[in-house]
Design a protein around this nucleic acid. Structure first.
Length: 511
DNA sequence: TCTGGGGTCCTTAACCGT
DNA sequence: TCTGACGGTTAAGGACCC
């Protein structure tokens, strides 16, 4: 019994970079790199033009700049990507109720469940129409894989890129997979790949020949079984529409390692606040607080603490995070800090009151107990620390705040600011203009920041529907220049029909 | 100028209770 | 009462994904 190829995997091509190219006409056909622009940034997405220089995602931005010095380097604008993603996902949901988003730019769709296709021919027609639809609604190209299972559909869309469609006919999958690298299988990353390679296994065919027992022995129970099944092309995981979040976390990598313990504590408090903000926004509370510390040498520690019940009280999370930090040695410096909450529960108002009370009571009890037991237990607490001469070298400026990814431009500003002991009396605020920021000029209209430095900011005046625009330079404090919100990729005029009803627009522009 | 940020899942070990 | 098997929970770390 073999399944019809009605599982669809959709993958938007070089998504973030393509959105930026659509939004900024002068970048079309050019190398565009979206990612962190700070000294420790990495590439999130590179346009196909940039990939030709060897630039790829997860590569340090500094290295990308060496390979592709003339590329356009932009910070990610998640609000815009999410808006575009919503348009795409809406198209998918019009095909079937069973849509499983994997990220902003990827999703599985069970076409059969939605009655959108029951066989290979139908699936092809539906998929081509979908691609045309997405292009009409967003101006972007998508690649689609069709197969009888999720795993194969994903392999197919990978093979279809860019801007293509690939259907794996039932019955051909084993032969198709056999010569492929083990790394093409989802779940086989650098570590497992290397592990297998040392055992002489580099292709999927060799994986299948190794046998289940051998793979389990090499990679562990769960992984081994899954690997063996995938190697045979077997995968019966269903497409699941809603999956609830299991954890919420925030983390920051600092441009310069943090040494000052006071500063570190302060950052942890900030992160805890941000984390709770997210937690609440998602309508959850959580029971386990996790602190993450990446040290100067990239070694990563996590410490966690499970409360008696779920909370979404910032004070509770802050205190837990602070306690966890006290158990960690940060001498040598810290490059990243993170705070997370897991063990999520649905948020309800009553719970919160009860929870806050219970928590307060528990803390009071714990304190009382500790006091009673005074002197006893742990001698290990290094509350000395002072010896390190923290005061000596005043943590030179440094600051992080590379304009935190999703935040609306400008909202940030205050964040880093600090000379170590800044007594919170804000310094005169300087506007920041990270590359890629949307702006509007009183006289010249909408544009985007191409670059800034030494008191100047360079803006290119163009927008999604326009021809490539002109560049002008202004003083950073030019009052006529202000940050603005992203404009829709497909303008009201030519896009509204595609936006409102799900009707497929005619132009294919099939390339 | 080495190596982001937000997740998921798995493994191992310790510990607790039955 | 001691011992062992076993399951559940917690904690820590790692691999992987986009």
């Amino acid at each position: 019994m073999r399944a019809a190829p009605t599982i669809l995997h959709l993958d938007m091509d070089a998504f973030y970079a393509s959105v930026e190219q659509a939004a900024k006409p002068s970048l079309r056909g050019k190398a565009v790199i979206v990612g962190g622009l700070g000294p420790r940034g990495v590439v999130a997405t590179a346009s196909y033009e940039a990939r030709r220089f060897g630039v790829h995602s997860a590569m340090p931005t500094a290295q990308a700049r060496r390979l592709c010095p003339n590329g356009a380097y932009l910070i990610p604008r998640f609000t815009l990507y999410r808006a575009v993603s919503d348009l795409v996902m809406a198209r998918l949901r019009a095909l079937s109720p069973l849509v499983e988003p994997l990220s902003l730019d990827e999703a599985f769709v069970d076409l059969e469940a939605g009655g959108a296709a029951f066989d290979a021919a139908g699936a092809r027609v539906t998929a081509e129409r979908l691609r045309a639809d997405i292009r009409a609604a967003t101006g972007l190209s998508a690649s689609v894989g069709l197969a009888g299972s999720k795993m194969l559909a994903k392999v197919a869309s990978e093979g279809a890129k860019p801007d293509g469609l690939l259907l794996i006919e039932p019955g051909t999958e084993r032969d198709l997979l056999a010569p492929m690298s083990v790394r093409t299988l989802p779940g086989v990353g650098p570590a497992t790949g290397e592990h297998l390679r040392r055992a002489g296994i580099t292709t999927v065919g060799e994986l299948a020949d190794a046998g289940e027992d051998e793979l389990v022995r090499m990679t562990g129970r769960a992984h081994g079984v899954a690997l063996y099944r995938m190697a045979l092309g077997l995968d019966d995981r269903p497409v699941v529409a809603e999956r609830d979040a299991k954890s919420v976390s925030v983390e920051d990598t600092f441009d310069v390692d943090l040494h000052d313990r006071v500063r570190i504590r302060g950052e942890v408090q900030r992160l805890a606040e941000r984390c709770v903000g997210r937690l609440r926004a998602s309508g959850h509370s959580g029971r386990t607080i996790v602190l993450k510390v990446r040290r100067y040498d990239f070694s990563t520690l996590t410490r966690s603490e499970t409360l008696r019940g779920p909370t979404d009280d910032p004070a509770v999370v802050r205190e837990a995070a602070a306690r966890l930090l006290e158990g960690i040695d940060t001498t040598g410096g810290v490059r990243l800090l993170g705070v997370g909450v897991s063990g999520l529960a649905d948020y309800t108002q009553e719970d919160l009151f009860a929870q806050a009370e219970a928590e307060a009571a528990a803390r009071a009890a714990a304190r009382a107990e500790a006091e009673a037991a005074a002197g006893g237990r742990d001698s290990g607490v290094p509350d000395s620390a002072a010896g390190a001469g923290a005061g000596a070298r005043g943590e030179d400026g440094g600051d992080g705040a590379d304009g935190g990814a999703g935040a609306p431009v400008g909202a940030q500003a205050a964040a880093g600011a600090g000379v170590a002991d800044a007594p919170v009396g804000d310094p005169p605020q300087e506007r920041r203009w990270p590359a890629g920021t949307d702006v509007r000029h009183e006289e010249y209209g909408p544009g985007w920041v191409q670059g800034s430095g030494v008191g100047r900011v360079t803006v290119r005046f163009e927008q999604p529907g326009s021809p490539p625009g002109r560049v002008r330079t202004f003083r950073m404090d030019d009052p006529d220049l202000e940050p603005s919100v992203p404009l829709p990729l497909v303008g009201e005029r030519d896009g509204e029909h595609a936006e409102r009803d799900g009707e497929h627009a005619k132009e294919g522009t099939a390339g």
